[in-house]
């Protein structure tokens, strides 16, 4: 039984947004994240999916305390992260890292690859000798598939895939227990994407890492995750073990997302049914009453507008927030 690293309960991130009135103005909370809960164990990957603006990046940042939470709790190895002072938080952060989407923008253009990868060591191992640091950086470069002769090159001399490897090396050099990957392969070419996905999975196995893998690409998320969470307008719609979510999704939003994923097979792509979503994403400043998804939901009824759905459990570890989850949805043809 592996230990629970992270226990997130009812996490909320609200931004005050000024609406109306130039001088006096009133503030309306924009609920970027509104009551999300999950647990994460060592060696486990949680995939987080949803459309732009659903709160998936906010979730990653709020877990790492890079954004102040408005409510809820993040427990890290049993300690409440949101109560820690800056010094204690810095100490805990040694074990939590993040990999960003844009590989070039997340690297300082005036630092060499070696300096970038060594930066966490300089912060957390101030007494480490230069030679030892360099040896550690070179070893890490080898592990992420970068030649150690590239240590003195600047980010612009690397390709997108190589820059992402530098970002991964920087995240891994302190032997973290948790890595948040925020769309780490979205900016990469198809042939490079597979290389980086394999690298992340290999490092995870070797280091027994817990990973939060944020992506809009449901095919990649299925490949890499053990469990998957589906977000919509800052709320969890469904969370389930990978195979349960992909083979028997219960939430109409999950079903719609899965049915919209392009399949690289002309026969299947042209024959399979699609669950189309009506309308546009509502404004998060003025979310629909009841179930936030109801304005685009093909199964919405009167109750959806009046009552916010509570958690239902169609299976072990499978939670869904929908009044109509029992009604059979669209058959998604996914291999088990």
């Amino acid at each position: 039984m592996s230990e629970t690293l992270l226990d997130v309960k009812d996490l909320k991130v609200h931004y005050p947004v000024r609406t109306g009135g130039l001088v006096i103005g009133t503030y309306t909370p924009l609920k970027a994240l509104d009551g999300v809960s999950f647990e994460l164990k060592a060696g486990e990957t949680l995939g987080v999916v949803g459309e732009s603006g659903c709160g998936k990046s906010t979730l990653g940042r709020a877990v790492l305390q890079l954004l102040p939470a408005t409510g809820g709790a993040v427990a890290w190895l049993g300690r409440a992260l949101n109560d820690l002072d800056a010094k204690a938080l810095k100490a805990e952060r040694e074990r939590m890292q993040i990999v960003f989407q844009d590989p070039l923008a997340s690297l300082d253009p005036r630092m060499t690859a070696g300096d970038i990868i060594a930066e966490p060591l300089r912060n957390y191992r101030p007494h480490m000798s230069k030679a030892e640091m360099k040896a550690k950086v070179k070893d890490m470069m080898g592990r992420v598939g970068l030649h150690s002769t590239m240590i003195n090159r600047y980010p612009h001399e690397f390709s997108g895939g190589q820059c992402q490897r530098i970002g991964i090396a920087r995240a891994m050099i302190l032997d973290p227990k948790l890595v948040v990957c925020d769309e780490p392969v979205s900016a990469l070419d198809v042939s490079i994407r597979a290389q980086v996905v394999n690298l992340l999975m290999e490092l995870q196995r070797a280091m027994n890492l817990a990973m939060i893998f944020i992506s809009h690409d449901l095919s990649i998320v299925r490949h890499i995750s053990h469990r998957v969470m589906v977000l919509y307008l800052g709320k969890t719609m469904e969370i389930a073990p990978r195979d349960a979510l992909y083979a028997a999704p219960r939430h109409p939003y999950t079903q719609a997302l899965l049915s919209a994923v392009p399949v690289p097979d002309p026969t299947i792509a042209r024959a399979r049914p699609r669950l189309a979503l009506a309308g546009e994403l509502p404004s998060p400043l003025n979310p629909p009453s009841g179930c936030v998804f109801r304005t685009r939901c093909p199964r919405a009824t009167k109750v959806c507008a009046e009552v916010e759905p509570t958690r239902a459990q169609p299976g072990t570890g499978h939670d869904v927030w929908c009044h109509h989850w029992r009604e059979s949805g669209l058959e998604t043809k996914v291999a088990p």
Partner: peptide, 18 residues
């Protein structure tokens, strides 16, 4: 390219290099 219609594999096939 991983696809939803196939069972997931442990390691994705890759094209080496760039």
């Amino acid at each position: 390219t991983p696809r939803l219609t196939d069972a997931p594999t442990a390691v994705l096939p890759t094209i080496p290099g760039q």
